[in-house]
C-alpha cells in the first residue's frame, strides 16, 4: 500500500472474528486480539477495505452468517495443543482440511472446525480464510490472560494486521505483493 493509492483496497470485504470466553483465562485471547486489531492504527490496517469486527462466544452458525460474502476471513482463537504459551499457529483453512483434533475441540453442539468444514462442503468458504490460534497457558475461571500470552500479543497483532493488508490486496486482484511474494502468510499446521 502506498500514499499514491488512497483508495487502497476499497470494496474488499474483510471479516475478523474473535472466538472465546473472557472469563476463562487465555480462552479470551481471540476476543482480546479482535479488540486490539480494531484499535490498531489505521496505517496498519488495509486502507479502504470494509472490515466487519465480530466477537463470537458460542453459536458458531452465526459465524457462518458473518462469513457470508466475505473476500477475506480471519478467525482468532485460543489453541491448546501442548505447545509453548503464546506460540502462534496459522492455519490456511481454504487450502487445508482441518486436523481431526481441531474439528472436535469444543463442548458445544457444533465446534469451530465442524462449522468451517460445513462451509467448505457447501462451497461457502471465503476465498481466503485463516485461523490465527494462540497457544494458551491457563483456562481457569476468572484467571484473565496469562503473562506469557500477554507478552506475545503485540507482535501477533502486528502480524495479523500485516497479513490482512496482504490478503486485501490479493483479493482486489492488484497483485501488488505477488501471489508468493514477500509478506505472504506462512502456514504452520497444528
Amino acid at each position: 500500500m502506498t500514499a499514491a493509492e488512497p483508495q487502497g483496497t476499497l470494496g474488499v470485504r474483510i471479516v475478523v472474528i474473535g472466538v472465546g470466553n473472557r472469563d476463562r483465562g487465555d480462552d479470551g485471547v481471540g476476543l482480546e486480539l479482535l479488540e486490539r486489531l480494531q484499535h490498531a492504527s489505521r496505517a496498519e490496517l488495509p486502507h479502504g477495505a470494509s472490515i466487519d469486527w465480530a466477537p463470537s462466544d458460542g453459536d458458531l452458525t452465526l459465524l457462518m452468517d458473518r462469513l457470508e460474502g466475505a473476500d477475506v476471513g480471519v478467525i482468532c482463537d485460543a489453541v491448546s495443543s501442548g505447545g509453548e504459551p503464546g506460540q502462534l499457529h496459522v492455519i490456511d483453512v481454504g487450502r487445508s482440511v482441518l486436523p481431526e483434533d481441531v474439528r472436535c475441540a469444543s463442548t458445544h453442539a457444533l465446534g469451530l472446525g465442524e462449522t468451517l468444514e460445513l462451509l467448505r462442503v457447501l462451497g461457502q468458504l471465503p476465498p481466503e480464510l485463516w485461523i490465527y490460534g494462540v497457544e494458551g497457558a491457563r483456562y481457569d475461571v476468572g484467571a484473565g490472560i496469562s503473562n506469557e500470552v500477554e507478552r506475545a500479543l503485540p507482535e501477533i497483532v502486528h502480524r495479523i494486521a500485516r497479513d490482512l493488508t496482504h490478503w486485501a490486496s490479493a483479493a482486489l486482484g492488484a497483485g501488488a505483493l505477488g501471489a508468493e511474494g514477500e509478506g505472504r502468510p506462512c502456514t504452520r499446521a497444528l
Binding site: E114, E117, L118, V121, L122
Partner: peptide, 17 residues
C-alpha cells in the same frame, strides 16, 4: 454428523441454515 449430512444432502443443509 452435520458435515456428513451437508455432503450427502447439501440442499437440506442449506435449507436448515
Amino acid at each position: 454428523g452435520a458435515v456428513d449430512l451437508a455432503r450427502a444432502h447439501p440442499e437440506a443443509m442449506q435449507r436448515g441454515l
